[in-house]
Design a protein around this nucleic acid. Sequence first.
DNA 1: GTTAGGG
DNA 2: CCCTAAC
Length: 657
Amino acid sequence: MVLHKRLDYGFNGYQVPPIPRATRSARGRGNIRKKSDGNKMCAFDLLTTVAGKLLLEGESTPNSTNTVKEDEDTSLKENLYNEGIRERGFFISPIVSEAPVVNHCLSKSKDTLSGQASVITSSDCSEKLDSAERFINCESKNETRNCSTKVEQEASGFRHFSNCTLGAESKKQMKIDLSNDAKIFGSDFPDLWDRKPTNLVVSDNTVKLSLSTDHVPFGSFPVIRNDVKLTNKDDDENYCGCAQPSTRNKAFRPTPRVGNFRMRKLSDVNPKFEDADIETRHVYNRKNDYKSERSQRDFPFKKRKLYYCNSFSDSDGGSSDRICSSPTKDLNRDAAGYSLASSARAAVGTSISRGARTSSDSHVKLKIKSFRVPELFVEIPENATVGSLKRTVMEAVTAILGGGLHIGVVFQGKKVRDDNKTLLQAGISHDDKLDALGFTLEPNPSRASSTLGPESHSRVLPCDTLQPLTRGPPTPTVICNGIRRGTYNAFSDHPETNLNNFIESDHDSAPSPPDASMEKDAADSRALVPVAAVNAEALAAVPMRKPKRSDTAQRRIRRPFSVFEVEALVQAVEKLGTGRWRDVKMRAFDNAKHRTYVDLKDKWKTLVHTARISPQQRRGEPVPQELLDRVLIAHGYWSQKQAKQHMKHQSETRLLL
DNA sequence: GTTAGGG
DNA sequence: CCCTAAC
């Protein structure tokens, strides 16, 4: 499968630079800020706000470490050495050229960010680190080594700071883990990370730095290390207005911006195309009226959650529909994605600056300084370009962020579950307690842990975690479309990197409710695995739920093609013609498991139709006119060719007769 | 298993 | 997307 020498590496942290203040856009990509009275702002609102914030950040472009920032097209080989894998890092920078540096941002918003940076990494952290290590020592009865050596530990079964491989990041990473541990201490947050150390495996021209997972407590999304500033200063006049549930959806839903999509001009290059699946994850229910459908669209994961709850109890009740993933290839594959994703739960270390708060002002303003995406897996050919690496990472990040996450709030080591509690009631607005606020990004809960055996039941995330998405009107707006992919030019790479850079985004395997949830969740989690074959062996033991399709086979979920996918399709068809859908599939969608060649054929059909109708009649995400033009051209060309062939064939047969 | 086309 | 006939 892997033709090129590849670099595989898991990395479990992104640094998301401080989100600049909301000065440009009305959507307020900036400080998260509640316009409403802070005392009346309930925890739920907070969750929603953070979730929306995250999604907005999807417009950012991932950058690899600044050392390679400039040479986007330099081969990775020139920049990355196997031995130096630990030195790598990624950060996400806004599209707007100036990649914000912490200091830069600090100086820019001096009043809101003062002293943040030091808060994050210094004493606070190490203090907790100590206690966490003590905890680990106690629990594992193993010597806790320092960060740099933990990686080499092969022993499994005791906890590590899984993030220790990131060098300079370690302090912060530690803090994340601490947050998890804090939850353990508080025994109010049953899930935690259990990991084996990172392994460096070199074999078969493949270099894999894998962060293998010991058990997966729960399907959770990675993300987040955020440093949150809590202040009540009213200094941000560019407030985005996202506070009100009624406007939130809108605010968090970026308007289609086709313009950001840089169209490729050449057509002789293989589709260098990362499966853009994020935007396609709406859940539609045809039976619902418009309102409901829209609601589903706005909160695409609501239904899923509900299903999850169902199947959760179902599986707990002794359903035998799980399978332990056997050595079967496909299962391994799935299991890999599943478990990787599931393992990615991260709690958030929070850092709050508390100088600025005055008791008279009841506003609570959060500034998320950085997020960590704790675990991602990327496999990329050694000769891929840095630019393609960035894109691949981008895909991974967007997959995560768009994957249906929901936000949890951890305060003082405990999860704040009551969404209706005000910040004031939760104590979050108290000056002296502000250092204990954190956020967790959680995927649609999947019940990976239920396969861990009875003893691990305590880690099962209770269903009430789902509350934010199953209750009350304003569920967090998780807008898949919030992740636009138009911000990077994904089509400039060498053909060889084409398929290898694909993002595995098989989010769906035709789930069937009510047991759809598990599968779906698992599939969703797979979005975390940018490259499919990753580390399958190591995770083969993670069980998957077997699709229960005894009854009526469930209709596959509708997954609108993204512009990127269309681009890839058009390109492939331009090259291969309209009668070779299998080849098209292999060429351009090989890693997009959910796109069958029939799908591609169908999509082409609709594309041709779309191209022929007037723009006013078109629906869905607008396809750039350039693409549609190419569709018509290609379609005409190949139709003509086909016709000619047909004529030729006919005349030949006539001659024979 | 693929392709093509109607539903 | 589904279904199915035809290859």
